[in-house]
């Protein structure tokens, strides 16, 4: 297979970037999208050019490092997968593929396709935890949790923090990311004591980081590699309402 790649190149956060066109050939359909970038980079290095910088690590869709906006969509034209899980069989031979970084005020670009997602960490630091120190915890089975609840909590907890939700949202809203954590801990008995403070603090930090607000387009759910449901956003809204009103 052959492809034309239009890739966003930007030297650093201070520079202006632009789409640059590259041609790749001898691609097989079972190659992953990142392997195509690997191959392109090998060619660029050979030529003495600067290879395309992109974040990646586990390459099995769980670390959340990779995140690219491929042909106008977070993680490209697949459902329920990260960029590293995108295989070239998802594209037509000869297609032009546009690759951009995740764009949001809360995700400043570091270089090329690499963005700074530390805003997510700061949101977590604001309240995405149960305040329990190491040791002195009760026996694990002392807190029974109905399977149904545990399953829904697990759905929320499966968030990989990649930022696809922010990237896909027309408002660059981080609501799905924040809601996944708020919802997980609101569902579980362990999260009850700090329930109110948590949702208020995490949302305040989210606003502070410059993310937009949710207008319920549900793009986030559609583009989430873990297919996390927007019902978690509804739950967070409810949590927030309850927290503010009581």
């Amino acid at each position: 297979m052959n492809f034309t790649l239009k890739i966003w190149r930007q030297k650093d956060s201070a520079s202006k970037g632009e789409l640059t066109t590259y041609y790749t050939s001898d691609i097989t359909s079972d190659m992953s999208f990142l392997e195509v970038l690997d191959k392109l980079n090998q060619e660029l290095i050979k030529r003495g050019d600067d290879p395309v910088a992109f974040d990646h690590d586990c390459r099995e869709g769980i670390c959340g490092s990779c995140g690219m906006y491929i042909n106008g969509r977070s993680h490209g034209p697949q459902r329920g997968g990260a960029s590293c899980q995108l295989h070239m069989r998802s594209f037509k031979d000869g297609e032009t593929i546009v690759v951009e970084p995740f764009r949001a005020k809360g995700f400043p670009i570091i270089k090329d396709l690499v963005v700074d997602r530390s805003a997510f960490d700061r949101i977590m630091q604001a309240g995405g935890f149960v305040s329990v120190d190491t040791g002195g915890t009760p026996d694990a089975n002392a807190i029974p949790i109905p399977k149904k609840i545990a399953d829904v909590a697990m759905n929320a907890a499966s968030c990989i923090g990649c930022g696809a939700c922010v990237a896909a949202c027309k408002n660059s809203s981080a609501m799905l990311f924040v809601a996944a954590k708020v919802s997980q801990l609101a569902l579980l008995p362990q999260g009850q004591t700090e329930r109110k403070e948590r949702v208020i603090a995490m949302l305040a930090q989210m606003d502070k980081e410059g993310f937009g607000s949710c207008t319920n387009t549900y793009s986030c759910e559609a583009e989430c590699p873990k297919e996390i449901s927007v019902t978690h956003i509804a739950r967070m809204n409810r949590e927030y309402l309850k927290a503010v009103l009581s």
């Binding site: 149960v130 009760p138 694990a140 089975n141 029974p144 545990a150 909590a153 907890a157 362990q190």
Partner: peptide
Amino acid sequence: NSIIDQCVAQGVPFARDYGGLL
């Protein structure tokens, strides 16, 4: 054993059976 206790206290959603236990 303490690890499991610790993680459950943190809110790690381990798989559970229908009785709600791990």
